[in-house]
Design a protein around this nucleic acid. Sequence first.
DNA 1: GCAAGGTC
Length: 726
Amino acid sequence: MRTIMMVAEKPSLAQSISKILSKGSCTSRKGLNGSCWVHEYNGVFHGQTAHYKMTSVCGHVMSLDFIGKYNNWDQVDPAELFSKAPTEKKEVNPKLSMVKFLQVEARGCDFLVLWLDCDKEGENICFEVIDAVQPVMKGGVREKTIYRARFSSITEPDIWKAMNQLGEPNHNESLSVDARQELDLRIGCAFTRFQTKYFQGKYGNLDSSLISFGPCQTPTLGFCVERHDKIQSFKPENYWVIHVKVFRAKENPLTLDWNRVKVFDKDVGQMFVNLTKTSKEAQVESVTKKEKSKQRPQALNTVEMLRVASSALGIGPQYTMQIAERLYTQGFISYPRTETSHYPESFDLKGTLKQQTNCPFWSEEVKTLLSNGINHPRNGVDAGDHPPITPTRAASEEELGSDGWRLYEYITRHFIATVSQDCKYLQTTITFNIGTETFTCSGKTPISSGYTAVMPWQGIPLEEALPVCQKGDMFTVDEIKLVEKQTIPPDFLTEAELITLMEKHGVGTDASIPVHINNICQRNYVTVENGRKLKPTNLGIVLVHGYYKIDAELVLPTIRSAVEKQLNLIALGKANFQQVLQHTLDIFKRKFHFFVDCVSGMDQLMEVSFSPIAAAGKPLSRCGKCHRFMKLIQVAEDICNACDASMVMVDFSKTCNPLPADETQHTGCIFCDPIFQDLVEIKHATMRHPMHRGKGARRGRGRGRGRRGPPRKPKDKMDELAAYFV
DNA sequence: GCAAGGTC
């Protein structure tokens, strides 16, 4: 019997595809790497009975890197990375021994069917798999042995259709990914190494060990700085509006909106006030009532989930994906990385809804929908990757934990909303004439809450009802005044806005957007402020302004899309891989040399924000390990009871610290405090410290002695310094 | 120590 090896992009897909193709009859075992499964069953292939082995990889098998000697930053000129430095493919995760695993399973197989995701990356992984297994498969002399299955969703009809219409892997699409990898590697590393080495150790208070550059992360930072610049250059402008209040006997006064909204000249404003004041009455010109609706949301995809998690739940993209991943592996939600916002035709909307019948938070709405009939979901985008994100079974807060529950709750409410009715309301507008001017007053009254019953934050807020009136009715003018106001600057970019910008400009993918945002935070280019607003740091601002000054293309989002256009030509077979690669590398090599020649322009900006080591007059040594200049750490006034050393107060990073939850500050002795002891490495300088002189830590000095006496006086400046260096 | 893209 012939054996067919089939490979999907991830274990979960191998499972669902084999379940469909074996009609639920496959047997499963774990592979030798412990993370992939092999599902086996018998079936028919090319009209003959055959044995199927379906397994998967975990994303890319290989990744591109420079050969070893070009990874030495001190001996390689970054300019060499553009052409001279050879690259090689290495296994992404040697611990997974993916190549060996694939070879063990493929040995002696007759056919290979590739079920990798149907996008360019998937096509590239096809060839990684082929390269790994072809040498160990049975060599078909004349017969074709390698097939590609193309599917647009993980549903029975689509999977069977793909199995019955096997094609060939697309080499050109794979080559376009090879080109992208090489360009990203060479360009990113060259600029990153040059910048890092150039600025490292030049400025005393530039606290960054790595100053990175990348075709996605740099434009991402650029968006944040662009908003910062808008705020900085904002000049408030005065403007004037007319405030008018009218009333009718026994009714509350109404505040009206001026049809001209505002004017930017006080005298003109005053003139309109005078014109308005010519009448003591306001006459109703018209009353219009319009039924309006707020549309139910489209099915949920990753980017929308990230936006809402950030803006409404206050959870950042990176952490959101971690939570979503966990909910997915525990079986509470569907696969969380998808661009698709359209349910497949075969999607069991009712079944998914039924699972939620007993959850007290929305059981009422779910029951109503099930008995009255669900609404047809809105049309969305079908990217052909995975179905939208939906709950897959009922859950409770106890099972999921606080953050897990909050995300699950949102996903579930969003799902219910997509099959609910639109929210309908009545918009009433009353138009008044006062003198020559026109004013209006409008209000919304809910007709039916629709989907906002499960997404109450989007509901129509209850307003005071407008008075019942008709054309020609008269109101008394209560008050007319000219009010001076000022335009206000925009706020820092929110994470949700940044995600929208990145998606719009094609910077990153649904899976990598959180990574890029996380990068610019970790590299100290932006900080996350209250309300998940991204505020650029001095370093982030200087970098972007420096690029603007030298070569703005380095920071514009078009840097990615322009290259991608070229890559698409490779994918379509309209351009030659080598030519595109060479041409693009050549452009960036020139950009690199120009940047190197003009880097003093960025340096000038650095000098404004950071103090050069030379100017600060700190004759400090560099660290032998990281090459950064060492710092004199400011110490607290208190003295350690045990050893007389000055106490140190440390502000830890919010995200990574050894302290109990929510704490970020800790004061203690770096020699005796248990928290600090684990974090510092003591070099020889401390040997002169009483703590480390001879055997025994305290050598007869009683605990608490230091509290009474003054600290040991250092012999000289160097001694003083030595005591602090760790 | 570097990029961005998969996925866990």
